[in-house]
Nucleic acid binder design. Structure first.
Lengths: 231, 231
DNA sequence: CCCCGCCCGTGACGATTGTCACAGCCCGCG
DNA sequence: CGCGGGCTGTGACAATCGTCACGGGCGGGG
C-alpha cells in the first residue's frame, strides 16, 4: 500500500487541469496554500447548502456528487475519479455548496481554497480560460443529463450508461466487452435517476434481449451495436 | 411601435452583464464587432449540434432554450428575457451549439461573436470573472433542474414554477397574487418536463386544493404559503 | 357575421415507474 | 467456521405519467 503524501507539492498543483499552464516556480508558490485530505469509504466531504471551502482535485479513489430529496431519494450528478476536479460552482458564484460529495471508496483529495482560486484567475488569463472551459464542459454535460432524465426511459438511460462504460473502460474478450461492476445497485440507480428495483428489471430486460449478460461482478456487452440502438 | 436600432452602440455593449466593467471608450471599440438580429415569433435562432456563432444578449422579447428528443418531445432548459445572455457554452468549450433557441414572441438579440468574447476574456480579468460567475450560476440552476426532474412529481414542479412566478412577476390583488399566463400550455409543459395534458390536470388538482385559480389569461395564487408546501 | 385554425380541458386507457416485502447469496469479521 | 449485515433479484401492487381522441372556446381574417 502506497504511503500517501500529506504535503502538497508543485506537481500536485500542475496535476490540476485548470493550473496546468503554470510554471514550476509558480506552482511552487501555490503548493503550500493547498490542503490534502483523506477520505474513508462512504466518507462525506461536502454537504449541499453548507458554506464552501473551495474546489477539489481527486488524487486517488472515486467520489460521487449528488442531490438529496426530502424523502431521502438521491440523484447522482456525477462520479469523479483521479485527475478530475469538482466543487467550482460556489467558488465562482459565491453561494453555498451546490451538491453533496461522498467517497465511493478510500480516496485522497486536494483542496484549492476559494480565495486561492480567485487570485489565480485574476493573475493568469490561462487559468481563467481553463476554468471557463471546464465550467462550459460541465454545463454541456448537464444539458445531456437534463435531456435524458426528461425525455428517456430508465432502460434507455441504463443502456447509455453501459454503452459509455463499454467504450471507456470495457475490455474486449471472446464473450464480448467486459465491464467491471464498480457501483452498487443503489448507486447505479441514483446515477440513472431511478430506484434499484427498476434498474435490476431493466438490466434483466436488456439481458433477455440478448445484448448484455449480467454477472455478479461484471456486465458483458454481447452486442455493442444492439446496445447503441436503445439510445 | 419603437423603431429598433440595427446598429450596436456602446450602451448595448455595457448592457451585457459580462461586459459591464468596461469603460465607455472600451465599449466603443467593441460595439462595431457585435451584430443585432431581429426574430419573428417562433423564429429559430440556433439549432443544437450546429456550429456556434457566439453568445447572445436579449435586447427585447423572450426566447426559449430547449433540447429535442428523436420522437419530437422537447425539454425547455431555460426561458430568457431582456438583459439576459445565453449560448456561452460552445464559445468556451469549442463544441457545437448545446441547445436550440427559438423566440416566443418578436425579439431582438445582440450577437457577441466567439472570437470577440475570447479576446475580451484574455484582456480583461473582470470580464473573465463575470463570465465565470455567470457559468457557475447557470450550473447551479441546472443542478436544481436535474434534481426536480429526477426527484419531484410534475405537480411539484408546476407548483415551484407558479411559486417562483408569483414572487418574481406576480401582482398582489384582493383575490391573491395574479400571474399573467405568458406561456402556452405546450410551452409550460416542456418547461416542467411533461406533456400539456398532464400539466392541465395538475393545474386542475392545484385548483381543487384551493391554492390557485386557473383562468384563461392568468393564474391567481390564493394561498402562496399553501403553494410553497408542495415544493 | 361566419368560418377556420389553434389551443385547451377532459376522460379512457396503457405504459412506466416506484413501493413494499421477502428470500437468497456473498463477504467480512470474530 | 459460523453468523450477521448488506446487497440483490423478483413479484405483487399502487401511483404517476403519457397517449389518444374528442368536443368546445377563442381569436383573427374575410
Amino acid at each position: 500500500m502506497e504511503n500517501v503524501r500529506v504535503q502538497v507539492e508543485p506537481r500536485d498543483v500542475l496535476a490540476i487541469p485548470h493550473f496546468a499552464s503554470l510554471t514550476e516556480a509558480e506552482a511552487a508558490t501555490v503548493a503550500p496554500l493547498l490542503r490534502c485530505q483523506r477520505l474513508a469509504p462512504r466518507g462525506r466531504l461536502m454537504t449541499e447548502g453548507e458554506p464552501c471551502a473551495g474546489f477539489y482535485l481527486v488524487r486517488r479513489g472515486t467520489l460521487r456528487l449528488f442531490r438529496t430529496a426530502p424523502d431521502g431519494r438521491e440523484q447522482t450528478l456525477r462520479i469523479v475519479g483521479p485527475g478530475e476536479t469538482f466543487g467550482e460552482v460556489p467558488v465562482f458564484d459565491g453561494g453555498p455548496n451546490a451538491a453533496s460529495v461522498e467517497a465511493l471508496e478510500e480516496a485522497v483529495v486536494v483542496l484549492v481554497p476559494a480565495a486561492v482560486a480567485q487570485v489565480l484567475v485574476e493573475r493568469y488569463p490561462a487559468v481563467a480560460r481553463a476554468l471557463l472551459r471546464h465550467l462550459a464542459v460541465r454545463l454541456r454535460a448537464f444539458n445531456e443529463l437534463v435531456e435524458q432524465l426528461s425525455l428517456q426511459t430508465v432502460q434507455q438511460r441504463l443502456a447509455r450508461y453501459l454503452y459509455t462504460e463499454a467504450r471507456e473502460t470495457g475490455q474486449l474478450t471472446a464473450e464480448g466487452v467486459v465491464i467491471a461492476r464498480r457501483l452498487s445497485g443503489q448507486d447505479l440507480a441514483s446515477l440513472v435517476g431511478s430506484v434499484r428495483e427498476v434498474v435490476a428489471r431493466s438490466l434483466r430486460a436488456l439481458e433477455d434481449e440478448g445484448v448484455i449478460a449480467v454477472e455478479r461482478h461484471r456486465y458483458v456487452v454481447r452486442d455493442l451495436e444492439g446496445l447503441r440502438r436503445y439510445l
